[in-house]
Amino acid sequence: MSANSILGKDLTGLEHMTPEQIRLMLDTAEPFKEVSERPIKKVPALRGKTIVNLFFEASTRTRISFEFAEKRLSADTVNVAATGSSVSKGETLVDTARNLEAMRIDMVVIRHGSSGAAEFLGNRIASNVINAGDGKHEHPTQALLDLLTIRDKHGKIAGLKVCLVGDVLHSRVARSNIWGLSKLGAEVAVCGPWTLLPRGIAELGVSVFGRVEEAIEWGADVLNVLRLQLERMEKGFIPSLREYYRVFGVTPERLERAAKPITIMHPGPMNRGVEIDSRVADGPHSVILDQVTNGVAVRMAVLYLLAGGRAELADAAKRGAGGNE
């Protein structure tokens, strides 16, 4: 029941965030990075806060990242997975939410297969809601950690050329990245087979390429390679994984054409040999593991700010001075 923070009550997406709010989240993540490097990885910023991680879709990386972020801020956390819970017994989303709220929680981190589920929840409960991925809509903390990683690597975001490669149609990561990158002044492109590029995407102000080669010629500084869900082949969007790799895979051979080294990102989990070649994923310009590291810091920052923490106190918070209002 925290008062509206500087970010508002919930973080459901980046579309309606201001550039200042996005920068604030990134800046607040900086001091939290160091917490994870300590022998005792804990600060008391969210001591006494109760957080529920409500995952209606399977997730390993995102859920663990949130859980680490919560625990390192000293929050009490409960994980609810869709299987084995009342959810699988036909309970509606709104009933699940009301029951959680009745147990007097402070925050909910939700992942759900339906676009808009986080907003739906946020509009119905007083607790803070953080979107950990809703359908094909947004995955804001993933985009924030991507932004932080780009900023770490290049020292800036404005003016860079960033291309999202692959299954943009079904990707919440792509949508959140488009909003975040655009708001911070990057030039954004999307690239993939036309079957996996959504209608109207160019109207979001991005360049659209049908081939990876075109994105490289465009002068991309960063390629953010999206995961290809294997079910896309079964549903007929692409003929085969083999051909996908041949035509759209990010390979060293394709990257050699670039005039400069291109930073390689991937939100994980990777399909090696499908959307990305192992030599690229493990290569010198890959920042894929930095993304994972930054994920914890970004999520700590978001949790801290939504709980009412003040930006200028972030640094103090990590030293153990608290920071909740």
């Binding site: 676009s115 094909k136 809509h137 947004e138 919440r172 949508r175």
Partner: peptide, 12 residues
């Protein structure tokens, strides 16, 4: 199916 469905991430 159009710009709004693309933004909302809903199948058009």
């Amino acid at each position: 199916e159009g710009l709004v469905s693309t933004r909302l991430g809903l199948k058009g």
